[in-house]
Design a protein around this nucleic acid. Structure first.
Length: 590
RNA sequence: GAUCCCGUAGCUCAACUGGAUAGAGCACCCGCCUUCUAAGCGGGUGGUUGCAGGUUCAAGUCCUGCCGGGAUCGCCA
């Protein structure tokens, strides 16, 4: 990390040096925002642990640290509290200086990583022939937030949607189309082409055929064998199947791209499992030659169990007994592809938590095979989206809620809310629709991302698209009020000036702004977007309180007016930055 | 059966990896628009953190055992 430092880091340096002087690791000096704003701005709890190590009285040690802190020009008051808490209150000058720094910094006080890495983020992972539904929201929204965050922190990110386009479901689908339209040339092995350019199936057809085929394959052993065979033939290049499969992919992609535009999500690569296919044969041969892959019950497997394992660790199936490549094999092939192309130092897989075992297996196999070390591969699991019964969300009629319908519904509610509030009456219909959509997307993304990534959550439609309280629209509202303020200020010729922190609300706002860097670091290190959501909300809240308590344009004192205006503008910049990292776009008015 | 995750206010969720008086939002009650957008602000009610032990200056957080819910456990992805 490089300069400038946030207030906690500046204080930590002072306290850390004092601890070091006592022969304790400087890490003991870590300062953080106080839990007790009534007592302090920042606190340090290191004295207690240090006292234990040194066998000394914690209050005695804390007193020594306090003396050092008091000598700092940043500190106006510092004292020992309770068993050895160190409390610090900052000088107005220190707060003002930090506020100025944030106000003038395009990154709003956020630092950047020292050594950028090449990072691949694999998310989305939608399946061909399946329309996006509510269950696909998390990977998309979390992955997108992470790619924005990692880029902002300075890493070289490549995002890849990694479509599910290569497994058994493709064979199932081919056979299902064959049942319905047996006369198509795709099924005629003697047909020499060319195949029709027009797809024989629409997305609606696929949406109908897919569950149908899947159900048959599940219940009917003979049909399943047929599906396996078709899958194997597709994978080994049967022209008719390839041509038909290409139609499935194309038809699906049109719909997926539409959702991406609607959600404001972008991928660098639209690769799929099938793109790993060219890398697999050589990989398999190599692994066989090195005896890493072994033949077992007709399948080529890689054993990944370790003696230290507490749980059962099944081997991965590199090539199944039909000669087809499953998702184990294609995931390894994908690693080879990325290694040869991008050569990432870190790969993040944003995939359902239920696939944790799968990724552990693949990562171990990759490590054993010398493709990429386990340490460079990370599965970022997320919880499932459940209904009120605690089971994966279903609509009242038992079906899945399509993402497109869900977004449309959110748009409608947002539009209705705008009318109700009589806002935006003076803008064009097109702008109104644009605002409503931004509000809807903000509501959806914030609802999802503010949950801890790893836990399941209960999906409540009304709560998801509610616009009051701790919601995406609340954040937009705060930003929009500042934008409105900026327009008026412009018209009145108000200019920003030196920042002062007189009122409690002003102090609180500066402290909130200062916390951005720490929130970013937390969200980045832990790959947890909810920490960013939390920060954005806290900031918006601090601003709303400030906005109510501190008049700006009507303030008669010119210095106060200029200071508050500066604070407002600094807040807007940081709020928009933070929202941008969550994937939320701010309208000009609402 | 084995392994892992979860259990916090009526509801939905936080809690900076062991710190002070466990915080938000919704719902409910009381105030605030002749000052910059009331999708807002201020205040209030609401907790034995599933249960029982243990570790220590300090436990929602760590260890053990229960209870309840969920997920996963070789040729589907």
């Amino acid at each position: 990390m490089t300069k400038p430092q946030d207030l906690a880091d500046q204080l930590s340096d002072v306290a850390g040096a004092a601890f070091a002087a006592l022969g304790v690791d400087a890490a003991a000096g870590a300062m953080r925002r106080s839990d007790r704003p009534d007592l302090a701005d920042f606190q340090c709890n290191g004295a207690m642990a240090a006292a234990k190590k040194l066998g000394k009285n914690p209050r005695e040690i804390a007193t020594a640290i306090v003396d050092a802190l008091k000598a700092s020009p940043l500190v106006t008051a510092s004292e020992v509290a309770g068993p050895g808490f160190i409390n610090v209150r900052l000088t107005p000058a220190a707060l003002a200086a930090r506020a100025e720094q944030i106000a003038s910094d395009p990154r709003s006080g956020a630092r950047i990583v020292e050594t950028p890495r090449r990072v691949v983020i694999d998310f989305g992972g939608w399946n061909v022939a399946k329309e996006m539904h509510i269950g696909h929201l998390r990977s998309t929204v979390i992955g997108d937030s992470l790619q924005r965050l990692f880029r902002f922190m300075g890493d070289a990110v490549t995002s890849d949607v990694h479509l599910g386009d290569w497994g058994l479901q493709m064979g199932q689908l081919i056979n299902e189309v064959k049942l319905e339209q047996p006369g198509l040339p795709y099924f005629d092995a003697s047909f020499t082409g060319p195949y029709p350019e027009q797809s024989p199936v629409s997305m609606d057809d696929l949406g109908r055929l897919y569950p149908q085929a899947s159900a048959k394959s599940k219940s009917d052993e003979a049909r399943r064998d047929e599906d396996r065979k078709a899958t194997q033939e597709l994978q080994s290049g049967r022209p008719g199947y390839r041509a038909l499969w290409q139609h499935f992919c194309n038809v699906t992609r049109v719909g997926l791209e539409r959702e991406c535009i609607s959600l404001g999500v972008r991928f660098d690569l639209w690769k799929g499992e099938s793109d790993a296919e060219p890398f697999v044969p050589a990989l398999v041969e190599d692994l066989k030659a090195r005896s890493i892959a072994e033949l077992d019950a007709g399948a080529w497997i890689i054993r990944v169990a370790r003696e230290t394992d507490k749980k059962e660790m099944p081997p991965i199936i590199l090539v199944n007994r039909d000669g087809a490549i499953g998702y184990h094999g294609s995931d390894l092939g994908t690693i080879v592809d990325r290694k040869q192309g991008i050569d990432p130092q870190l790969t993040l897989y944003v995939v359902d938590q239920r696939q944790a075992l799968h990724f552990e297996q693949v990562f171990r196999a990759s490590d054993r095979a010398g493709l990429m070390p386990e340490s460079a591969l990370e599965h970022l699991g997320f919880g499932t989206v459940n209904g009120p019964d605690g089971k994966p969300y279903k609509t009242r009629d038992g079906g899945t809620l399509k993402l497109q319908a869900f977004i449309a519904q959110a748009d409608e509610v947002a539009t209705a809310r705008m009318k109700e509030a009589e806002l935006g009456a003076d803008v064009s219909a097109a702008e109104q629709a644009d605002i409503a959509h931004k509000v809807a997307v903000a509501a959806i993304k914030f609802s999802d991302l503010s949950n801890v990534r790893t836990t399941n959550y209960i999906f409540d439609l009304d709560r998801f698209i509610s616009f009051e309280g701790r919601t995406g629209p609340y954040l937009l509202y705060a930003a929009v009020r500042i934008k409105s303020l900026a327009r008026r200020a412009e018209a009145e010729g108000v200019k920003p000036g030196p920042i002062m922190t007189e009122l409690d609300a002003e102090r609180a706002l500066v402290l909130a702004l200062d916390a951005f860097n720490d929130a970013l670091r937390g969200a980045y290190d832990k790959r947890m977007p909810h920490i960013l959501c939390d920060h954005a909300y806290t900031l918006a809240q601090a601003f709303s309180a400030f906005y109510a308590a501190a008049p700006i344009l009507v303030e008669t004192n010119a210095e106060k007016k200029a200071s508050r205006f500066s604070l407002a503008m600094a807040t807007l910049k940081q709020l928009e930055l933070a929202l941008g990292l969550i994937g939320i776009d701010t309208p000009e008015r609402m």
